[in-house]
Design a protein around this nucleic acid. Structure first.
Lengths: 253, 253
DNA sequence: CGTTGACTTGAACGATATCAAACAGGGTGG
DNA sequence: CCACCCTGTTTGATATCGTTCAAGTCAACG
């Protein structure tokens, strides 16, 4: 899941006399796709953008619904799900701050998108954003690379869904969340105990891992009993040993 | 899995006096990413391309290996797999004629790619192709849209892997293959009996569906007993009722 | 005709689902 | 402040589906 988004162009501060843009103080200015744009281009994007806050459970896109905007996630977490007609549900993507939401040049959303924590989205009108994409190859390039990152993540998850045991799935999930919340690095050895909050309920974790709530809960208590993690309430995880968690994510015994 | 690749530009025949290109007679000229290019651009691509035939089982890329070329699949089928350290394997993508193979601007292949049937690939040197991509926005756009198609397919497969039963998985697999081999349309009602050959062995089907060989085999015999499909040998499927197969792919009882 | 590899079939087992109940924490109204 | 409820979570008992292990079939091929 290595991010290969290239460092953007130089991000000029506003020159004396130039207007100050909201983007200048944006928390994800450099990590998000906007990083591909020059100051004048950012000004154009700024003109079509507006931010909106979504409460947990609030729907961003309905499945198969016409889409009229794209968005950068500024803060929070959004789950992307697909459902079978009888209600079975699978989370097919989990997006965090700086991720781009939406499928450029597609009319309909192939998934249901819903905020899982209070989330701030920086939204762009679809048609206007697509015009900007056509005019700036750098932006399309950045979106393309982001799509390839998502594809890598999806393939990694297919391996998990198809071939890992419940215990490995839950351990892998904890590692993924710790990484994406910048609690641990991608490859470094184990550090001291770290604490972080899970953005998802047990039900959502189950939908992400292709398991039931009960199985997820049992695996949490097992990891706790093995002293690989600690729990403070249901949502706060204390990472006791990142190394042993990595081992649990791919047991080869 | 709807393909949203836009129809390409007009494909000029060679004008009198112009050289004839191999691409002029290419079987996938219009469906593949090359469709984005004008005749002069095609000539440039033609100059860096060469075709190669891969036998079943022959490796195209090794997992995590440095990649030096991209390819269009002209004929055949290629499986993309990921493996766990203890040997468990998952197919994360199955590519057919006109599909593009490789991840532009990435150094390493995140998966193992292997021909499953005799396959003909039209290969491009990585660096030269990437230069072409930088120079022609239409080509990058087409690659981007192709990546989004792959992402849609991956998400659909995540739903299958995480939430479908063995019977539904096998039925979904048969539908997917029938569609991609143009045996049935994407949405039309049931047609008369159709016959097609599976490109994969039972072992590969199992790796695609996150099942074991034995379970796949049992589901085939069940579908046969229910007279939804017929079998001639292990690899030839007779589709008796596409509608009932669609129902079996998502049973809501 | 014997060997080999791909596939099918059967019996037993086990991981995960299902069903059911108890528990914990946070908010609300009395 | 407490009783109550609501939702999310944990725990336990049992059922089920898919795996595992083990034969057995079949067709291709030397």
């Amino acid at each position: 899941m290595a991010s290969t988004i290239a460092p953007g162009v130089e991000h000029d501060k506003p020159k004396p006399g130039e207007p100050v843009l909201r983007c200048d103080s944006c928390a994800v200015r450099n990590r998000a796709v906007c990083g591909a744009l020059s100051r004048t281009e950012i000004a154009q994007l700024n003109a079509i953008a507006h931010t909106k806050t979504f409460a947990p459970g609030q729907i961003v896109y309905g499945e198969d619904e016409d889409v009229h905007f794209f968005a950068n996630i500024v803060a929070g977490a959004v789950k992307l799900t697909k459902a079978l007609s009888d209600g079975r549900e699978q989370i097919v993507g989990l997006q965090f701050a700086s991720d781009f939401l939406g499928r450029p040049f597609r009319a309909r959303s192939p998934f249901h998108a819903e905020a899982v924590t209070t989330s701030q989205l920086c939204m762009f009108d679809k048609a206007k954003f697509e015009r900007l994409v056509r005019e700036h190859q750098g932006l399309e390039h950045r979106l393309f690379q982001h799509a390839l990152d998502e594809l890598d993540a999806a393939e990694e998850w297919m391996l998990l869904l198809g071939r890992k045991s419940a215990g490995e799935k839950v351990a892998s999930f904890l590692l993924m969340v710790a990484k994406r919340m910048h609690v641990i690095g991608c490859h470094g050895p184990s550090e001291g105990p770290q604490r972080f909050d899970l953005p998802l309920t047990r039900a959502a974790i189950a939908d992400y891992l292709g398991l039931t709530i009960e199985t997820v809960s049992r695996q949490f208590t097992r990891l706790k009993a093995e002293k690989i993690i600690g729990l403070e309430g249901a949502r706060t995880v204390i990472l006791i040993s990142a190394d042993r968690l990595r081992a649990a994510a791919e047991r080869s015994d």
